[in-house]
Amino acid sequence: MAEFNIDDTVDITDVVCPTTFVKAKVALEELDDGQILCVHLNDGEPVQNVPRSIKEEGHKILKLINNEDGTYDLIVQKVGD
């Protein structure tokens, strides 16, 4: 993760769909164009759906890091205001 300049981090492992995406979306809304968010999410449904939904909102997925403990870190760059 050192390769990215993370501006904010959000943990969505404590909520279930669709609040997972909603929580990530809210965190992204707080950022400015070009800033980077790290989303900590669970394996399974969240990792299948959340990256796709974030992409559909027009943001840029920079990397998905498998933490090998049943969780992932999704590195997202905010696009737009």
Partner: peptide, 23 residues
């Protein structure tokens, strides 16, 4: 900031691009 409960309660609103967290 929204609580997790509020995120869940208003999730169908926040998902809408016309609403979002700001709305």
């Amino acid at each position: 900031a929204f609580t997790n409960e509020q995120l869940e309660r208003y999730s169908r609103h926040i998902i809408l691009k016309e609403v979002g967290a700001k709305g």
